[in-house]
Simulated scan of single mutants.
Amino acid sequence: MSARHLVVHGTVQGVFFRASAEQEAGRLGVAGWVRNRADGTVEMVAEGDDDAVEALVRWAHEGPRRAEVTGVDVSDREPEGLSGFVQR
Results as ranks from 00 to 15, higher is better:
R88M: 09
V15W: 00
S75F: 00
F17L: 01
D51Y: 06
N36Q: 07
D39H: 09
A3Y: 06
E68H: 15
G48M: 06
V69I: 11
P64T: 11
V12W: 03
G48N: 06
H9T: 12
R66Q: 14
E47W: 07
D73V: 11
W33S: 13
D76F: 01
H5P: 00
V53D: 04
R58I: 04
S83K: 13
Q87F: 00
S83H: 13
V30M: 02
V72R: 00
V57T: 08
T70F: 08
V72G: 01
V86W: 09
G10I: 04
E47R: 10
P79Q: 08
S2A: 14
N36F: 07
V8E: 03
V74L: 03
E78P: 07
A55S: 12
G71F: 08
D49M: 04
G81I: 06
G26D: 11
V69C: 06
V45T: 14
V15I: 11
R27L: 12
V53P: 03
R35H: 03
V7M: 12
V72H: 01
R27C: 05
P64R: 09
E43H: 04
V45D: 10
D76P: 00
P79I: 09
A60L: 01
V53A: 07
V42W: 01
V34C: 07
V86R: 15
R18Y: 04
A31K: 02
V30R: 01
V86I: 11
L82A: 14
G32S: 08
V30T: 05
E43I: 07
A19G: 15
L6C: 07
N36H: 08
E68Q: 15
H5C: 02
F16M: 02
D76H: 06
T41N: 12
G29Q: 09
S2Q: 15
G10Q: 10
F16N: 10
R18Q: 04
V8P: 04
E80S: 13
S20G: 12
T11R: 15
G84A: 04
T41M: 09
Q87E: 11
A67T: 09
E68Y: 10
E62I: 04
D39N: 14
S83T: 15
A46D: 09
Q87D: 10
G14A: 12
V7Y: 08
D49C: 12
S75D: 13
R35N: 01
A19C: 05
V72L: 05
R58M: 04
F17W: 03
L82K: 07
A21F: 02
V12I: 13
V42C: 08
R27K: 14
V30I: 06
R58A: 15
H61M: 13
N36V: 08
R77H: 07
E24H: 05
A60R: 02
R88L: 13
D39E: 10
V69S: 02
M44S: 08
R65D: 14
R4N: 05
V45K: 05
A46V: 10
G63D: 03
S83Q: 12
R66T: 10
V69T: 06
R66Y: 12
Q87P: 00
V7D: 10
S75V: 13
Q13A: 06
V53N: 05
V74S: 04
S2N: 15
P64V: 10
F17D: 01
A60E: 02
A46R: 06
W33T: 09
D50H: 11
S75L: 09
R35I: 00
H5W: 07
L82W: 00
Q13E: 12
L56I: 01
G10P: 07
R18M: 05
R4C: 03
Q87G: 10
D73G: 04
